[in-house]
């Protein structure tokens, strides 16, 4: 846990430093293109949003029992080729 936290911190700080150092080369169309480490934060939050959002939609509306469509109860289909 500790090692991963340290490695992540080093990665985020060094890439953010790179972004700041070479800011003048970047193609910044929107303001977030200029924010250092934006993509890392977006990755963490986006991933959380996808997991929690989808699970919520799934449990609330989408997921059903495996035999919902009257298929054979969880049959192990033999696929030989």
């Amino acid at each position: 846990m500790k090692r991963i936290t340290i490695a992540t911190a080093i990665f985020v700080l060094s890439t953010a430093a790179l972004e700041l150092a070479f800011r003048h080369l970047a193609h910044a169309t929107f303001f977030w293109h200029k924010l250092p480490a934006f993509d890392f934060v977006y990755g963490v939050l986006g991933c959380g949003l996808i997991v929690f959002g989808s699970k919520w939609v799934g449990h609330k509306f989408v997921q059903r029992d495996v035999n919902y469509y009257d298929d054979r109860p969880d049959q192990r289909d033999q696929l030989d080729h």
């Binding site: 992540t8 986006g46 959380g48």
Partner: peptide
């Protein structure tokens, strides 16, 4: 380009941490 590559790695690292 540097910004593309850095952004890509940051996004992937963020996703991996959240995973």
């Amino acid at each position: 380009t540097l910004d593309h590559v850095v952004s890509a790695y940051q996004l992937l690292a963020g996703t991996a941490i959240a995973f």
